[in-house]
Design a protein around this nucleic acid. Structure first.
Ligand SMILES: Nc1nc2c(ncn2[C@H]2C[C@H](O)[C@@H](COP(=O)(O)OP(=O)(O)OP(=O)(O)O)O2)c(=O)[nH]1
Ligand SMILES: [Mg+2]
Ligand SMILES: [Mg+2]
Ligand SMILES: [Zn+2]
Length: 573
DNA sequence: GCCGTTTTCGGCCCGACTGTTTTCAGTCG
């Protein structure tokens, strides 16, 4: 089993245990184990061989054994038993909003409901409403949840919700009762996709603020409307939460509502160790005679627990609290640090703008340089360039630079295809004429993990290659990553002094943030590349930079933050 | 099942909201 499959299996075990009424802490141990494994960036086989699996936070002897067995044999005896003891359809029922393990179990045991079809039937015949703890409303909500389960479960691209966030914030801030309003949750942490929008407001009068919120245009349904919290669902299916708190509690609430959940749990654990209890309302001392600290800004929330302020992008519960404790947080890259970018297309392949138009746009971005990387000949679907056309483009770029029409320096290059066997689509003599060589996989994406890893490593070992393009081939919410051992590719990049791309196309955003901390520690450089096919797509690097920040990257670790002179000497070394 | 500058046993984050209930369990965030 590969990593991803093992993560899913551990999650399945957690769910099955939950459904069978197991100790909730044991359930959580499996769920935590899945998270721990998901965030391991080391190669799993290496960890198993070295006996280093146990010892990672959340992985003890039991989980280490289970993971090892899943990796090596692909099955677990107790999981088979667990699966056999529960109808598989319960997993789908559990996904309906409002139905948790207790209710699903009751439906199963009392009404013999084992799948969505039977559940629908029972609701329509009114039998569900008769159960203890259920009622007419619950029954109607279940039917609604079944009908809309696609829409309710969908996530959304960060970039797609950004304009909506801006609009809602502007609306909130325009209300006279609102003292402050911020977006929190996964949006503030800059996750590449968000499950919902989370807004926080400081106000002494929650009533009118929430009334405005639930009456916005485009709202299909109000799913909660309490004293401090409301939830709505827009017709698009996007959901949004609003929490209103008094100004004194704003920064504790902002911290809470920003999350992540794992980060919050770790912070609360830390508070407990210091004799304090932490919630969205602040810190309270367990000893009532002791004074509980307040907070005038977010820095003071962290300070109260002996920590430096942690940028929201890092709050994923992956070591940021430990780093903040030791004053070892990185100085994160900013958009302003960027001096250019690589990997841009023109009319010559599948871009929509000419070389001159792209150059003018790059100049307008205030950049010192940028590089062209049109497709190579095997990508015929994208009008990839053969050697003759590529040589002509090189000449064209030299002429453009010589003309001094623009101040921005145009670098020649290619996004050369990594062919099925790991060879490249141009020979070394051709590649040697280019300033910047980006190598990417565009075809034969269904190789098995070993073959794909070997293929990419072979390409990366070519001394002419500077940057590895969109490493996983994923298209967020559309297409899974192809199978590849990222840890091994990163190690190869480190050993060969290569740069890996952080493709800033909002649907790609790979190599993804979770791998960058380890990669950069090993010395791999990052290129935040727009993969622009139109002039306005240079702007992608802004969100790409947020992902680089999530990956703990600082200016020195980003190739396109280097001044041109340094860049050229790195490219030509 | 995990874990230990309180602990190797006995804890495990903590609060809002709904729908059901007649005082709160379950679910969610
Ligand atoms: N302490 C604590 N905080 C939580 C818990 N669940 C959620 N939160 C906080 C942290 C979250 O970032 C915030 C908003 O919850 P969401 O469910 O919207 O999660 P988030 O926005 O992080 O991810 P999303 O993209 O919406 O799935 O509320 C929890 O179980 N405990
Ligand atoms: Mg959210
Ligand atoms: Mg939310
Ligand atoms: Zn590409």
């Amino acid at each position: 089993m590969d990593n991803h499959a093992i993560v899913e299996t551990l999650e399945e075990i957690a769910t099955l245990l939950e459904l069978s009424g197991e100790n909730p802490f044991k359930v959580r141990a499996y769920a935590n184990g899945a998270r721990a494994l998901e965030t391991l960036t080391e190669d799993l086989d290496t960890l198993i061989a070295q006996g280093k699996l146990k010892g990672h936070q959340g992985i003890g002897q039991g989980l280490a054994d289970a993971i090892t067995q899943l990796r090596q044999e692909g099955k677990l005896a107790f999981l088979e038993e667990l699966r056999a003891s529960l109808p598989p359809g319960l997993m789908e029922i559990l996904k309906i909003p409002g139905l948790g393990p207790k209710k699903v179990r009751a439906l199963w045991q009392l009404l013999e409901i084992t799948d969505l079809a039977k559940l629908t039937e029972a609701c329509e015949s009114g039998r569900v409403a008769e159960l203890k703890g259920f009622g007419a409303k619950t029954q109607a909500n279940i039917l609604d949840g079944i009908k809309n389960r696609e829409a309710y479960g969908r996530r959304h691209l960060w970039i797609a919700v950004e304009p909506i966030v801006t609009e809602v914030l502007a609306g909130l801030r325009a209300l006279p009762e609102v003292e402050r309003a911020e977006a929190a949750g996964s949006f503030r942490r800059a996750r590449e996709t968000v499950g919902d929008l989370d807004f926080l407001v400081a106000s002494e009068k929650p009533g009118p603020v929430m009334s405005w919120f639930v009456a916005q245009a485009g709202i299909q349904e109000v799913t909660a409307h309490g004293e401090t919290k409301s939830s709505v669902r827009f017709t698009s299916g996007l959901q949004a939460d609003l929490r209103v708190v008094p100004a004194e509690q704003f920064f504790f609430a902002l911290h809470h509502f920003t999350g992540s959940k794992d980060h919050n749990v770790q912070m609360r654990h830390r508070a407990l160790g210091r004799g304090l209890s932490m919630s969205e309302w602040g810190l309270t001392a367990k000893d009532p005679s002791a004074k509980a600290p307040g907070a005038k800004n977010e820095e003071e929330v962290f300070k109260a627990l002996g920590l430096k302020w942690i940028p929201p992008e890092l709050r994923e519960g992956q070591g940021e609290i430990e780093a903040a404790e030791h004053n070892a947080l990185p100085e994160l890259i900013t958009y302003e640090d960027l001096r250019g970018c690589f990997h841009n297309h023109t009319l010559a392949s599948d871009g929509r703008a000419s070389l001159e138009q792209m150059t003018a746009a790059a100049e307008a971005m205030g950049w010192e340089y940028f590089s062209i990387a049109d497709h190579s000949k095997s990508s015929a679907y994208a009008n990839g360039l053969d050697e003759v056309r590529l040589r002509a483009q090189i000449k064209e770029i030299k002429a453009l630079n010589d003309s001094k029409l623009f101040k921005v320096h145009v670098l020649t290059g290619s996004e050369v295809d990594i062919l099925k066997d790991g060879s490249l689509d141009y020979d070394d003599a051709m590649l040697a004429q280019l300033d910047v060589v980006v190598a990417s996989v565009h075809a034969s994406m269904s190789l098995d993990e070993d073959a794909m890893t070997a293929r990419i490593i072979r390409a990366l070992e070519n001394p002419r290659v500077h940057i590895l393009g969109h490493l996983t081939g994923r298209l967020l919410l559309e297409r899974e990553s192809y199978k590849v051992n990222i840890a091994k590719v990163v190690d190869c990049a480190a050993a060969n002094g290569k740069c890996i791309e952080l493709n800033a196309n909002p649907k790609r955003l790979d190599m993804d943030w979770s791998h960058w901390r380890r990669a950069a520690e090993k010395g791999v450089l990052c290129a935040i590349n727009p993969d622009a096919h139109r002039t306005e797509q240079f702007g992608f690097v802004r969100t790409g930079t947020l992902q680089a920040r999530k990956g703990w990257l600082s200016k020195a670790q980003v190739l396109n933050a280097k001044p041109l002179k340094e860049l050229l000497s790195w490219l030509r070394r």
